[in-house]
Design a protein around this nucleic acid. Structure first.
Length: 380
DNA sequence: CCCAACTTTCCTGTTT
DNA sequence: AAAACAGGAAAGTTGG
C-alpha cells in the first residue's frame, strides 16, 4: 500500500511540476470571488479538458511527454511497483524516444518492471489502433470517463485555465467512479512549473526535479497524501455543469469530511440532488499554502511573503485561496472563514505561529517545513 | 471496530 | 458595520 501511495505522490507532483500547460495567472484574478470564480474556473476547465488525449488512444510513438508519463504512471501503479526505484528524470521523453528505448534501457530505468513495460509498449504499438474498439478490462475504467463531451469548446482559452487535469485532486479507484463528479481543480497550475513547451526550460527541467522518493522538496510533499491521483484525473473529462451543480455522486455514499452543514431550504433543495462525495485525500492545508507561496512566479495575487526568512506571509485574496483549497478538496463550499479555522488549529501544533494584530498574516512555525529558501532552491 | 490525525462546519464572542 | 480573529464543540474521512 505504501508503495502505491508513494507512486501517486511522486507522479502527482511530477505532473504538477512538469506538465501543467500554463501558470494561468489570469485565473488568479477572476472577475470576482466566490461563485463567479468557480464558474470561471469551471468553464476554463471544460475547455481545457476538451483536448486532453491520453496514451491509450494513440500509438506509443506518437505520445507526447505527458502521455508517456501517463503511461508510466499507469503501468507502475498497476504493477504496484516501488516508485523509489525509479529515477523520474529519465521519464522526460516523448513517445518517439520511448519507443526507441531498448529493453535494456527500460530495465535500467524501471528495473524489473522495464521488462514488462517493454513488452507492453510493443504490444501497444501493434494493437493500440484497436484499443478504442476492444477495450481491455484493465483499461475500461479509463474509457468509461474520458469520452464525456465537452460542454462548450468555444470556451477554449489556453493559458487561462485553472483546471488541473493532472493535479492531485482525487483518489484513484481504478474504476474511476469518482471522476464523473470530480471538480478536479487544483492549485497546481499556480504551483507548477509549466509545461516545457511554454515555460522556462530551467523551471521545468526534469533533472531539477529528480523525483526520487523521499525528496524533501515541497513539490513532493505537496501531494503528501494524495492517492494515485494522476492516473485518475488525467483520464477524466469532467463536465463543467457537473462540477458546478455537484449533483452527481459516488457509489461510496460517503460524506464529506467535516461536520455536516445545516441546511436552509435553499441549500437543502440543492443538497437533495447530491449525495456526498468521496473526499479526496490530498495536501495538508499548510502544505497547500506553502506551495502557493514558494512559487511566487505562479501565484501572483493570491498570497505573498511578508518576510520570507521568518516564514511570515499574508493572504491577498483570502477567498480565492479558500476556493482553491476547496477545489483541491472537492468542496465548493470552502470559505476563508473555515480555512482560517483550520489554520488556527495549526497554532497548537506549531505548524503556524500567531502573528498578532495583522490581519490575514500568518507565520510558519517550527513544525512546518519546505518553505525556507534554501529548501526550495533546487526547485527552480 | 477503534483510534488518532486532520480537517470541516457551526457557533458565539471579540477585535480591528 | 463588516471582516477577520479566536477557539470550543461536534462530526466527518482516512489510514493504521
Amino acid at each position: 500500500m505504501a508503495g502505491a501511495c508513494e507512486i501517486s505522490n511522486i507522479f502527482t507532483n511530477y505532473w504538477n511540476a512538469v506538465y501543467q500547460p500554463e501558470p494561468a495567472l489570469a485565473a488568479l484574478q477572476p472577475p470576482s470571488e466566490g461563485d463567479s470564480l468557480l464558474s470561471f474556473l469551471a468553464s476554463e476547465m471544460a475547455a481545457e479538458t476538451a483536448d486532453k488525449a491520453h496514451w491509450s488512444r494513440e500509438l506509443p510513438n506518437l505520445w507526447s511527454k505527458q502521455q508517456v508519463l501517463e503511461w508510466i504512471s499507469y503501468y507502475v501503479e498497476k504493477n504496484k511497483y516501488d516508485a523509489n526505484n525509479i529515477d523520474f528524470s529519465c521519464c522526460n521523453m516523448d513517445g518517439n524516444m520511448l519507443c526507441r528505448c531498448s529493453r535494456e534501457d527500460l530495465v535500467a530505468m524501471f528495473g524489473p518492471l522495464g521488462e514488462k513495460m517493454f513488452g507492453q509498449l510493443h504490444e501497444l504499438s501493434g494493437y493500440s489502433e484497436l484499443s478504442a474498439f476492444s477495450i481491455p478490462d484493465e483499461l475500461s475504467w479509463i474509457y468509461e470517463y474520458d469520452i464525456i463531451p465537452t460542454e462548450d469548446p468555444s470556451h477554449q482559452q489556453q493559458n487561462n485555465l485553472a483546471y488541473d487535469a493532472y493535479g492531485s485532486n482525487s483518489d484513484l479507484n481504478t474504476n474511476g467512479e469518482n471522476s464523473t463528479e470530480d471538480p478536479a481543480f487544483s492549485l497546481s497550475p499556480y504551483l507548477s512549473d509549466g509545461y516545457d513547451s511554454t515555460m522556462s526550460p530551467a523551471s521545468s527541467e526534469v533533472s531539477s526535479l529528480r523525483m526520487k522518493a523521499h525528496s524533501p522538496n515541497s513539490l513532493l510533499s505537496s501531494g503528501s497524501d494524495g492517492e494515485l491521483d494522476s492516473a485518475d484525473t488525467k483520464f477524466t473529462l469532467p463536465n463543467a455543469n457537473r462540477l458546478i451543480n455537484e449533483t452527481s455522486d459516488l457509489k461510496h455514499g460517503k460524506r464529506r469530511r467535516g461536520r455536516p452543514r445545516k441546511f436552509n431550504k435553499d441549500t437543502r433543495e440543492c443538497q437533495e440532488t447530491k449525495k456526498s462525495k468521496h473526499s479526496a485525500r490530498g495536501t495538508h492545508l499548510w502544505e497547500f499554502i506553502r506551495d502557493i507561496l514558494i512559487h511566487p512566479e505562479l501565484n501572483e495575487g493570491l498570497m505573498k511573503w511578508e518576510d520570507r526568512s521568518e516564514g511570515v506571509f499574508r493572504f491577498l485574496k483570502s477567498e480565492a485561496v479558500a476556493q482553491l483549497w476547496g477545489q483541491r478538496k472537492k468542496n465548493s463550499s470552502m470559505t476563508y472563514e473555515k480555512l482560517s479555522r483550520a489554520m488556527r488549529y495549526y497554532y497548537k501544533r506549531e505548524i503556524l505561529e500567531r502573528v498578532d494584530g495583522r490581519r490575514l498574516v500568518y507565520k510558519f512555525g517550527k513544525n512546518s517545513s519546505g518553505w525556507r529558501e534554501e529548501q526550495t532552491l533546487n526547485r527552480s
